[in-house]
Design a protein around this nucleic acid. Structure first.
Lengths: 158, 158
DNA sequence: TATTGTTATACTCTATAACTATA
DNA sequence: TATAGTTATAGAGTATAACAATA
């Protein structure tokens, strides 16, 4: 009834949870801030969060080839080539052709690549400590459990 | 004792939590993925997560001027100008000079700006539902509580 | 003909530096 | 002289498209 007198009810439900209280929104904001913390730390080593992300999915066995990494990290194959080039030149990964399908490059970590993950884990531990200090043991454990479950979504190809 | 026979103990503590189990790392990974979900959704409206972030900090009263927004969102003032220009041209915010200090631009949302936040909240609710479905009520509530506490860190100027 | 990876290219994002206006 | 905002510019990041090799 476009009478001009109608009260506007549809556009703003009114009973919805505001954006800033949405868990998905909060995860996004916190994640972006933490990513910037990681980026700042990694800069000294000439690395970015994407480099570490690639090392992680390889180390975890979530991605065997560059194509796997591209899909899992939601970045273009050409970008993966650049990151992999950099990681290989820094002796953090090795590429070898898959003898069963010579189009594929099978990726694996070097000892130095594992060491980078270890050093990054040390830095992450300092961030974790700051989070834990804020949350206390109960909320901290609740967060850990929830995050463990949610990570499953990403590793299942979603 | 650089004897050559020494066992390597310092570089790899061994008892540290691996990176992929770090809450900070997991928050980063999940946040980046969710940010890409938001970005994909907002694209149709010609907006980015940064636009919505700016609308949110204004609406929440966390930032009164462009300078406030720049510090809170950790982006350069010049970037804020671009985002604010876009938001103003789209009639989502208004700038007015602060009469007490004419260098400052006081920012506020228009009705349309608030509507954008509302529509984004609707989309966030769909992401929230997916998260909740994975977590179940107990873990879901634990996550909500922890995130609420952690958001405080950002709004306190940290 | 489809897949995997690479290269060439162009476009977007973002920061730095120089500048204007105000204090 | 310092602050808030703007503009100009350059650099980094990223995707798309064309290509090569393999299946």
């Amino acid at each position: 009834m476009n009478s001009g007198y109608s009260i506007d009810v549809a556009p703003t439900p009114g009973n919805r949870r505001p954006l800033y209280e949405s868990p998905a929104f909060r995860l996004t904001v916190l994640g972006i801030h933490l990513a910037s913390d990681f980026a700042e730390h990694l800069q000294a080593a000439g690395l970015t969060p994407k480099h570490v992300g690639m090392l992680t999915v390889i180390e975890q066995g979530l991605a065997r080839t560059q194509d796997d990494v591209a899909r899992l990290m939601r970045v273009s194959p050409s970008m993966i080539v650049r990151i992999a080039d950099h990681l290989e030149q820094s002796d953090l990964i090795v590429r070898r052709r898959d003898p069963e399908n010579r189009r594929k490059h099978v990726l694996s970590l070097t000892a130095q690549g594992k060491a980078v993950l270890g050093k990054t884990a040390d830095f992450a531990a300092t961030l974790d400590a700051a989070l834990a200090a804020r949350l206390g043991p109960d909320l901290g454990q609740g967060l850990d459990q929830a995050l463990a479950v949610l990570m499953g979504r990403l590793t299942e190809g979603q």
